[in-house]
Amino acid sequence: MKIKRFEKLAAPVLSIIIALLIGTAIIKICGYHPLSAYSALLKGAFGSFRYTMATLEKSVPLILCGIAAMVAMKSGIFNIGAEGQLFMGAIGYTVAALYLDFLPGPLHLMVCILVSILFGSAWAFVPAIMKIRIGANEVVTSIMLNYIAQLFTSYLVSGPMRADGAVSQSDPIPAATTIGEIVAGSKITWGFPLAIVLCIVFAVLFKRTQLGYEITAAGMNARAAEAGGIQPDRVRIIAMMISGALAGLAGGLLVASTFGRLVETVSTSFGFDGISIAVLGLYTSVGVFLSSLLFGALHTGSLYMEMFMKIPSELIDVLQGVIIVVIASPAIFQILFKRGGKR
């Protein structure tokens, strides 16, 4: 059991190492110094209290989208539409925040969160039902829905919801619906503890509850699950809606804590990153949490690296890309392990 666990961990660790090696080669070829580049990356991510907090805060939408991707993938359906669900969640949150302002403070906040969850969930329901009922591939339908959601956001902030001024954005949301810093000046908001709680909730869900068991069973072997009295189709729709709910919440939190209003660029591909994070995290809550921290650290660290070392922050896109291409190719590890002389 212990050896098996180690072997499992070897895949993500090795993929990160391979990515760093390829990164090193690229940095060298482009005439920079690899070691100072990586140390700048590290410094920018964890070099001070403020940087560390920024890294943690950055990881919040990543954690939510990571769990979102994980839940769907575990049930055997691919949620590449988290990006669109996130936008819908952001729209829902903003609409509720701006137009339901007659509600008393705490209730208003709750309603906003609920609406963002519902919007995300409803947006995820579309590809799920299209997949189950007519077999339309969820990857393609989700890509379409991503665009529709993004365009709809762009339409809202440049049309009906546009605030006065030169920038396409909505009015700021009322203070009661913003989610602030835990300690003033700490840069880290209540979104972070919420994300941790959700990690725990979903760890428990998959370990201890009937629903978690059904989702896992539907994903591993739908026919066997069916023989065992589980309806895989129903379970997948539920999993997809949970997934959408989490992505929608991520969008809501971005509005509530990061932007304070609806903007065109709510997400910088958090939804897609979530898929990478779920895969790198081996479809576990702990793994998703750690992978999100890694991706968050890469994001914040890369800005520092660019500012002080003049190395383009896009280097981390290459690192992230290589990590997931490697981890998505299990045969690499079989080859490595066989040659590595396990016997």
Binding site: I275, S276, D317, Q320, V322, I323, V325, S329, A331
Partner: peptide, 18 residues
């Protein structure tokens, strides 16, 4: 390497602009 193509395809899309 029998990769999970949806994931590695997204990976290629991340690598290219980087």
């Amino acid at each position: 390497l029998k990769a999970q193509q949806t994931v590695s395809g997204l990976g290629m899309n991340t690598i290219a602009p980087g």
